[in-house]
Nucleic acid binder design. Structure first.
Lengths: 178, 178
DNA sequence: GTACCCATGTAAAGTGTTACATGATTAC
DNA sequence: GTAATCATGTAACACTTTACATGGGTAC
C-alpha cells in the first residue's frame, strides 16, 4: 500500500459531498467509510494543507461561540476535476489484506488442536457484534428507498460491508463445534 | 496497521514449519499466505537479523554448487516459545481493510451513473479470475483428506480466501446488469 | 467544576514499498 | 549466451500510528 497517495483522493471525494472541517473528515474515517479506509487526524490536517497549497481545495474560517475557529474546506474546480479523473480510472489491483487471526490459524497444524475452538469463538463474537452494528446502521441510515436513491454509493458500501461480515461469521460458524 | 510488529511472529511461524531461507520466506508471502499478509524481501532480511540478534532464530550457511551461499534459518527454543505465546493470545481487533474500488463507488451518488457498470465489470473479472486461481490451488494442494489433515491451517486459510472471493464476486454480480 | 466532545496542529517512531546493488545457478 | 530464477542485502522514500500539545464549547 502507500505511495499512490490515495488519501488525497478520498479527502477530495468527501469534501465534494459537502464542505467540511478536518475534524469532520476524521469522523468520516471512523464511521461511513471506516470499513474501507482509515486515517487519523494527524494524517488529515497536513494533507489538507498540501491540497490547499496545490489549489485543489480552499477553506473559509468560521467562528462558533466566542472564538472557536473552524476551517471549512471546499473543492476548487481543479480539485473536482482531479477527483473525477481518479474515480474514472480503473482499479486493476486486488486489495491486499492483513488478517492476524487467520494467520494464527495457519500456524496450527492439526484439526484437533485445543486452541482452535476458543479462537473461533472469540472471532465469532467479534464479527457477530460488528455485523449487528452495521445492520443497525443500515436500518437507521436507509429506512426507505428514497434514502437509498439519495446516497446510492453510501448504500452500496454499507451493503458490501454487511455481506462481508455476514459471510465471515458464516465461515466461522461452519468450523465451530456446538 | 504496523507498530505491533506482527511480521516477526509470522516469520517465526513460517520458520517453525521448517527451516528456510529469507528468499523462501519472501516466496511464502507471495503464495501460501499472500492472501492474508504481505512482505517484501527488503523487510524480511533485516527482520531475520533482528530475530537472530534477539536469540529467537539461528542460521546455518549452506553452499549449493560452486559458492552460492544460502542462510537457512531455524527457530531456537526462545523463538518457539514466543511464537506459541503469540498464537495463544487473543486477537480482539477487527482487521482494518482498504478497498479503493469500493470507495470509488461511495463517491458516486446516483444508481444510474454511467460509470458504475464498467467499474463493476472490471472488478468482476478481476475477482473472478482470482477465485479461479485459488480454486485451482486448492485442487492441486489438497487433492484428498489426507492432505488436509497434514496441513489443516493451510487448508483453513485457503478455504477462507476462496469463500471471501466467491462472495465478493456474488456481491458484484448482484449489481451487474445483464 | 469537570468530564467529554469539538477542533487543530506537530513530532517521533514504526511499518512498508520501490529502487539500488550484486552475484550465482539453471533451463533453453 | 542469455533470460529467468535463486539469493542476499541496503537506501530512500512514502505511509501510518501514537504521542505530544493546546484550547474552546457543552452537558451534568
Amino acid at each position: 500500500m502507500g505511495q499512490r497517495n490515495r488519501l488525497q483522493y478520498i479527502i477530495l471525494g468527501l469534501l465534494n459531498q459537502h464542505p467540511q472541517t478536518g475534524y469532520d473528515l476524521a469522523k468520516a474515517f471512523e464511521n461511513e467509510i471506516g470499513e474501507f479506509w482509515q486515517a487519523q487526524h494527524s494524517q488529515i490536517y497536513p494533507m489538507l494543507k498540501r491540497l490547499e497549497a496545490a489549489g485543489e481545495i480552499s477553506h473559509e474560517d468560521t467562528v462558533t461561540g466566542e472564538k472557536l475557529a473552524k476551517k471549512k474546506y471546499t473543492l476548487t474546480s481543479a480539485g473536482r476535476e482531479k477527483l473525477v479523473t481518479w474515480v474514472s480510472q480503473p482499479s486493476p489491483e486486488l486489495t491486499p489484506s492483513k488478517d492476524e487471526f487467520i494467520l494464527k490459524l495457519y500456524f496450527i497444524k492439526t484439526a484437533n488442536d485445543p486452541r482452535i475452538q476458543p479462537m473461533l469463538r472469540e472471532q465469532y463474537q467479534l464479527h457477530q457484534s460488528q455485523l449487528h452494528h452495521l445492520q443497525q446502521r443500515q436500518e437507521t441510515v436507509f429506512p426507505n428507498q428514497k434514502a437509498i436513491d439519495q446516497a446510492y454509493g453510501h448504500y452500496l458500501i454499507l451493503d458490501h460491508a454487511i455481506e462481508r461480515e455476514s459471510h465471515y461469521v458464516e465461515w466461522l460458524a461452519q468450523y465451530l463445534e456446538k
